[in-house]
């Protein structure tokens, strides 16, 4: 049920992000979700794409450092308290969010959030217990 995210190290330099997106465009890779965490010197670009292998291959060819991380794509009700409903049970059992970002999904009335938990396996168990929908990597690619 885990989804896979690719992450890329980029220096804070003018036009660097555009270079990454151009490489992905040329490799015919579609970006489904993205987040950029940054410091003054560098940033980490995290991406959910429709084809991880193609994306990684194209970026590495251009000299980028690319990593892969297991994340969870969780359906969150688009209503007040929707996100809180997901976080509360995890928090109670000491599962913490390392980072999270939203997913663009026009086909679904609910929101999808990408989570990196410190303990993804335990998080998955808790979410299943609470009948919170977790979307598989395959589904994500096909959305």
């Amino acid at each position: 049920m885990l989804a896979e995210q690719i992450s890329i190290f980029i220096e804070n330099k003018e036009g660097r992000l555009a270079e990454v997106t151009a490489i992905l465009r040329d490799a015919n890779v579609n970006i489904r979700a993205l987040s950029l965490a940054d410091t003054t010197d560098f940033g980490v670009l995290r991406l959910i794409v429709n084809d991880n292998d193609a994306a990684e291959k194209a970026l590495k060819k251009e000299g980028f450092t690319v990593g892969r991380t297991q994340v969870l794509a969780v359906e969150v009700n688009d209503e007040p308290g929707g996100l809180n409903k997901v976080l509360d049970p995890l928090c109670e059992q000491d599962v913490n969010v390392e980072y999270m970002y939203a997913f663009a999904n026009p086909q679904c009335k609910n929101a999808i959030m990408i989570f990196r938990f410190d303990d993804p396996v335990k998080a998955l168990e808790i979410l299943a217990e609470k009948s919170i929908k977790v979307i598989s990597g395959e589904e994500i690619s096909n959305l």
Partner: peptide, 15 residues
């Protein structure tokens, strides 16, 4: 220079 062995996807670890 960062490489595959050094790279982590969270800023905290890199800092």
């Amino acid at each position: 220079e960062i490489d595959d062995q050094l790279f982590r996807d969270d800023i905290k670890s890199l800092q």
